[in-house]
């Protein structure tokens, strides 16, 4: 990758940055008609510029204008998923190509609903923008638990297991996916016992109460450390809100947009010594298709 070329990208981003706060829906609207490649060959402004440079002689004629305008009709700012944000399995309008990432690899639908509700309390929708639900955090966690990480594939899980000192860290034999299974079940049990309703059916304030009990290790669970489970839930919520959209969360890069994080940029050479500069975010998907 050539450094000189990419330093030019920042200028693009700066001019685009006015659009930073436009709602995602508007930006996405045109993507529905953008031709057969729109699902994974979305061209962002960078790749468009590169394409123009590479094929300058074509641009000089009008002969291909129609084809080009069709391609260039793609949205600029969508490095994530082209669909309207939705957190319900099978959601989306009929005219859209479905987001195939929105299905479950690990959770049962009941587990999913509990995690979706709990993470929304941890990272709720507010004036700043979407919460965990619209960002797709529960899908993110589902997908993570189905893989290497959920199986503790790269952790030392050999016996013998002893309860250690606090400073020695996690010493249990349970894998993350098993801790989630138990933790979710315990959230449900606690809710049923205390409120005679499942966790997902509780009022928001009641859900907060249950989560606080777990956070403060006050549920006296015989199975797992509820505060350990809670910390894991909180940590994965932030991961789901802020990791690249490629993993199923941070829908449409809205997590990044809320905090003016520009995602994956090739260069900040032009702004590193400047005052705060808003840069429209870009994802790894955009990087892949633009190079």
């Amino acid at each position: 990758m050539e450094g000189n070329k990419s330093s030019g990208l920042v200028a693009d981003k700066e001019t685009d940055s006015k659009k930073a706060l436009e709602p995602a829906k508007e930006n996405n609207a045109v993507s529905e008609h953008s031709g057969p490649e729109h699902d994974n060959v979305q061209m962002n402004s960078n790749s468009r510029r590169k394409f123009l440079v590479n094929s300058g002689y074509v641009i000089g004629t009008l002969a291909v204008g129609g084809a080009l305008s069709t391609i260039f009709g793609c949205t600029d700012n969508n490095g994530g998923n082209p669909q309207e944000p939705t957190a319900t399995p099978g959601g989306g309008k009929e005219t859209e190509i479905p987001n195939y990432n929105r299905a479950l690899m690990y959770f049962t639908p009941a587990q999913f609903r509990i995690v979706d509700s709990a993470t929304e309390r941890i990272f709720p929708e507010d004036d700043n923008g979407p919460g965990a639900r619209k960002l797709g955090v529960a899908f993110f966690i589902d997908h993570q638990l189905a893989g290497d990480w959920g199986f503790n594939g790269r952790d030392y899980m050999s016996p013998p297991f002893y309860a250690g000192e606090k400073v020695q860290g996690y010493q249990g034999r349970l894998k993350r996916k098993e801790i989630f299974d138990i933790g979710i079940q315990e959230l449900e049990n606690y809710s049923l016992t205390k409120y005679t309703k499942g966790f997902a059916e509780l009022e928001g304030a009641q859900q907060d109460e249950v989560l606080k009990v777990f956070e403060n290790e006050e549920a006296n669970l015989p199975t797992i450390s509820e505060s350990f489970f809670f910390r894991m839930l909180r940590a994965t919520t932030l991961e789901g809100a802020y990791s690249d959209p490629l993993y199923g969360g941070n829908m449409n890069m809205e997590g990044w947009r809320m905090r003016n994080y520009p995602g994956s940029q090739m260069s900040y050479l032009n702004i590193i010594d400047k005052d705060f500069t808003k840069v429209e975010p870009s994802s790894l998907q955009a990087h892949l298709v633009s190079h």
């Binding site: 990758m1 020695q168 790894l284």
Partner: peptide
């Protein structure tokens, strides 16, 4: 090429030794 990925590199330790094979003990 796909290195700007906080989850993969920072949180999941892409570049690091696989602890399932070898780690250290501490007291």
């Amino acid at each position: 090429f796909m290195v700007h990925d906080e989850l993969r590199y920072s949180m999941r330790y892409e570049m690091m030794q696989d602890l399932s094979k070898e780690t250290i003990t501490f007291r």
